[in-house]
Structures are given as structure tokens and as C-alpha cells.
Simulated assay, not measured.
Amino acid sequence: MAWSGFTALNAAAWNFVSFFLVRMGVGVGEASYAPAANSLIGDLFPAEKRARAMGIFMLGLPLGLILAFFTVGAIAEAFDSWRAPFIVAAIPGFILALFFFKMKEPPRGASEGENYTAKTVQNPIRTLLKIKTLRWIILSGLSVNFAVYAGNSFFVPLFQRYFGLSLTQSAVITGCIVGITGLIGLTLGGVIADKIHQRFARGRLVFGAICLFISAIFIGIALYLGNDSLTAVVILLSLGWLASYNYYTTVYPAIQDVVEPNLRATAMAVYFACMYILGGAFGPIVVGALSDHFSQAAMLASGSAVMTEHFKAVGLHNALFVIPVALFFIAVFVYLSSRSFVQDTRRLQ
């Protein structure tokens, strides 16, 4: 309810400071929802089914991106106001919030056949950070949001500046790359991850690491091709983003597997705090700063004293190479988490 309320309040912002403060409220609402939802999934589904359940749950991410990139422009034009999309986006949240009051919460540890509800843990943060697998996963989360937020923020400007497309064309293409691919990646990836986990205890995380490594290669090649290969760039970026969605179907269930039920919400809260504060916040900032730097370098290299759209396009394109680099590090962190996964799950059992 708070999440949707702050979303609607964005429409009332009158300057940058007010908009920034309201956006902080949106973040608080989302931060409260995500740990609770992930903990609930852990209680409802056993380890061998969690990847599929998590994949279905995370479909909200690409669906939201699709709706955003495909409809926001049209809504703003229809109402002749940039404020209208915030009101429209808040309405489904208010409706869904009413159904949450009717949900019955299972006991902590229901899927494990043991009730953890009454159990308490002293120094929960310290207890969580002692889990080696979780430490690697936190590092991977920091890196994944760095890459994801950089792509979501700058793919539209990239297609506008570097490929010369219109805003509408750029938004639709970006919606396909970061949105539609998620519907496939999360659904299919969840099924594959669960099947691998049933055969090899650490196989799910290894599968995630391989997918992220493939993602880094595809996205790196797409950026290397340049602006004369639009079709190939879109295909490779789409395949790379599709592969990256397997991060969620492999890492999120792993957190549930190595953390005792009555600490899962806290574990997700710690994970998301690092993920958003250090990763999501700095991804766009770093890419923006690098874009300015490379634009300036391109202008100076040409001997020009005037910053043109061409130099800005080159600068943004070069800055986005941090995305495949970040994905490579994510693959490494996820693989390293797989090496301690079996030991940490046995400790929990």
C-alpha cells in the first residue's frame, strides 16, 4: 500500500528535491515488500521447486518493464502530462494490496516440515554474514544491479544517439531487450535450474554462473559491433539479457537453501540493501560519468572545441562496456558461491 501510495505521490512533485524524497518513499515500500515475499516463497516451496516458484514470482520484473517502455509514452501523450503515468501505475498496487490482507501466512519453515516461528537468533546480521555462500551472493547482487540499472537507464539513449532512432522506436526495442526476454528466461530458466538442482546439489548455481558468462560475451560482442549492425546488436543484446535473467532463478533460491527459515527475510533485506544502495544507485552514476568522460575524450581527439551529439553518442556507447565487465564479475561471484553451497546447506540441515 505504501509502495503504491508513494508511486502516486510522484505526480505531485514540484521540483527535484520533492521528486527525490518521494522516490525514496517508493524505495522504502519496495524494500519492505521484497524480503517478505521471498521469505514467504521459501516457506511455501521446498528446495527442489523454489527456482520455478521464484522465476514465476520474478516475472513481475519484465512485465513491469514491458508495460513501462510500451505504455508510459502513450499515457503521457494521452493525458498531456508526465504526471499521469504515476497515477495509472499506482492503481493496480492499491487493488492488489487489498488481497494481501486475506493471505494466510505459513509457519516459518513449513516447506522443511519444521516450525521455526518461535525461534529467535541472537545477532542475526553477524550470523548471516558468517555464511560464506551468502557473502559471495551479496557481492553478486551488488554487481548485478550495477549492470541492470545501467542498461535500463541508458539503452534508450543509446539507440537514440548511437543508432539514430526515435524515442518511441528506442523505447520499444529496449522493452523487448529487457522485458520480453525476461518472460522466457525466468520461466524456462526456473524449470532448468530445478532439474539441475535435483541431480547436482551445486549445479543450479553453476548453471547461473555459466548463463551470466554467456550474457557477458553476447552483450560485449553487441557493443563491439558498432552502429552499422542494428539488427545483430538487438539480437545479441536480447540473448545476453535473456541469459542474465537466470541469475534470479539460481541465486534467489540458493539464499533460501543456506539460511534458516526465521532469518530469510532478514537475509533478503541485507542482500537487497547492498544490491540497491551500492549497486543500483551507482550503476547509472558510473555510466553517466564515464559517458561524459569518453564524450570529452572523443571531442578532444577530433580537435573540435564543440560538444556535438556524435561525441555524446560515442561516449555513451563506450561507457556501456562496463555492463559486460560487471556481468563477468557476477559470473565469478556466483561460481564461487557454488563452491561453498553444499557445505552451507549441510550445516543448516
Rank of each mutant, 00 (worst) to 15 (best):
A118L: 12
S238M: 04
G29A: 08
E105L: 13
I221S: 12
S215E: 06
V270E: 07
A12S: 14
Y247Q: 05
H197N: 10
V172N: 07
R346W: 08
S337W: 02
T187F: 15
I173H: 05
P62C: 08
F321C: 10
G226A: 10
F99V: 14
L212H: 11
G29H: 06
R135L: 10
Y276G: 13
L236K: 02
I184G: 07
L186T: 06
F328R: 01
A319S: 13
S166R: 00
A201P: 00
A254H: 03
V172A: 12
A254I: 09
A254V: 10
V121A: 10
F20H: 05
A11W: 04
I323V: 15
L237F: 15
F272E: 13
A74R: 04
A11G: 15
Y162R: 02
N38Y: 12
M103G: 10
L128Q: 07
L9Y: 04
R346I: 13
A298S: 14
G151N: 12
L167V: 10
N246V: 09
S215C: 08
F99R: 05
A298M: 04
R264T: 14
P284L: 13
K49H: 14
A216T: 02
S238L: 07
A267W: 06
P261T: 12
M275L: 14
L327Q: 07
H197W: 00
L236G: 10
I177C: 11
L59V: 04
H293Y: 15
I214M: 13
S81E: 11
G109A: 11
I180T: 08
V156I: 14
G55Q: 03
W136G: 02
V258L: 09
A90K: 00
L21M: 13
D194E: 05
W14P: 02
V191F: 15
S291T: 11
Y162H: 09
V88Y: 06
W82R: 04
P92Q: 09
N227C: 09
T266Q: 15
A289K: 05
V314L: 15
V342R: 04
F99S: 15
Y224E: 14
T231Y: 12
A243Q: 02
G315K: 00
L21E: 10
A13W: 08
S140E: 09
V325N: 02
S338Y: 04
N246G: 12
A118I: 03
W3V: 08
H310P: 00
V121P: 01
T231C: 05
A171T: 05
F294G: 06
E260R: 12
V148Q: 13
P253D: 12
V287G: 07
